[in-house]
Design a protein around this nucleic acid. Structure first.
Lengths: 193, 193
DNA sequence: CGCGACGTTGATTTGCCTCAACGATTGTGG
DNA sequence: CCACAATCGTTGAGGCAAATCAACGTCGCG
């Protein structure tokens, strides 16, 4: 059952007690999202932390020319949210959309704040969780400013083989900051080695 | 005095009690760093969280061709660390170096863990702190994959005018992911408007 | 004083984009 | 179940953004 998967997520960090699971389970809400359905749209305030049970979401920006730029994917056991919008309650500039039929569990802000306040384990667990995401993001940014597209693509394949296998290349190109056409040329060059 | 500046840092979040300040003050260590001196070098394990009281540090990667790529600056009231190395205790690939004579306050890992465990406010405060840094990093990455150099530079000027005024353009270019020569051309183009 | 960091300029090259076109696949409505 | 549209991956021609390399003047500092 989906909630157990959520509880298990915390096991490698600080496992939850029965009371904490109970409290979290009472507040968490499960939803099913269709392919191409939006979990968050531009100009909406991001009101949830979202945990992916199964499927895959993408979070992206649409620029003035209407082009999409993928900031993040979230597949099984990933958390995702526009944390800036969530905190400030200002409208988000990002979209969060399902790439596959997806099952998610969501926590609303008042519920998350309640958990933070009454059970220190959530401050701890979410601190460590975001630290890990922060480290991954730093690595990606470093690559973006220091490495050419081919190396970034190889690195993506190595780090996320399961994502690479299930995502269309257009989505991966957007994540890497290049055009689908150029990714196709990069792939061709790589296959000749 | 430097410690009061550190205590004050937490005021906008969850201010520290006298006991928490006492405990933090006992464990924090103040150091003075000369210009060009290293706080962390490649292949060392990052053993401290570092708070900048005065001056400025840069954290950067050196690639195979010997080129530096600035991941982050840290000026007054910024925290900085290689969190990945700090957690895993694996050697860092990054350098942390002073751009100016700098005064810092450092927390070693056992001390930070002690504070986390005995005073929940530190889990909370450091969670919020890193959430804010995470949001800023996401914005920067989005710009990096979606906007040309000129726009990234204008955005840097707008967001960090004080840094732009005190840092050499070579350092800013490295942060933006472009060469100093090209930044010079961007600046010329901008000044003609 | 002299050396090294810095900022700038110009000529040339290159990584990546744009635009257009095309087959293959997927999915969707009739 | 078929027909048609939409998405996807690929290729090629041409163009632009940014890198490379070299040179030069300025400045601050040891």
């Amino acid at each position: 059952m989906a909630l157990n998967q959520l509880f298990a997520y915390f096991d490698p960090y600080l496992p939850l007690t029965a009371a904490e699971k109970d409290e979290l389970g009472r507040r968490a809400k499960t939803r099913k999202i269709k392919r191409r359905q939006f979990v968050l749209q531009e100009n909406d305030v991001c009101r949830h932390y979202t945990f992916v049970v199964e499927g895959c979401l993408k979070m992206y920006l649409v620029d003035e020319q209407g082009k999409e730029h993928n900031l993040q994917f979230a597949a099984e056991n990933d958390w995702i949210a526009d944390i800036g919008s969530f905190h400030t309650e200002q409208p988000s500039q990002l979209y969060l959309e399902a790439l596959e039929p997806t099952q998610i569990i969501q926590l609303e802000k008042p519920d998350l704040l309640y958990l933070y306040t009454h059970y220190p384990t959530f401050d701890r667990n979410f601190r460590v969780l975001i630290e890990d995401q922060y480290v991954a993001l730093q690595r990606r940014l470093l690559q973006q400013i220091s490495a050419p597209a081919e190396e970034r693509y190889r690195s993506f394949l190595a780090q996320y083989p399961q994502l690479a296998a299930r995502l269309p290349n257009t989505q991966i190109a957007s994540y890497l900051g290049i055009t689908p056409e150029f990714l196709s040329k990069v792939r061709k060059a790589l296959s000749r080695k």
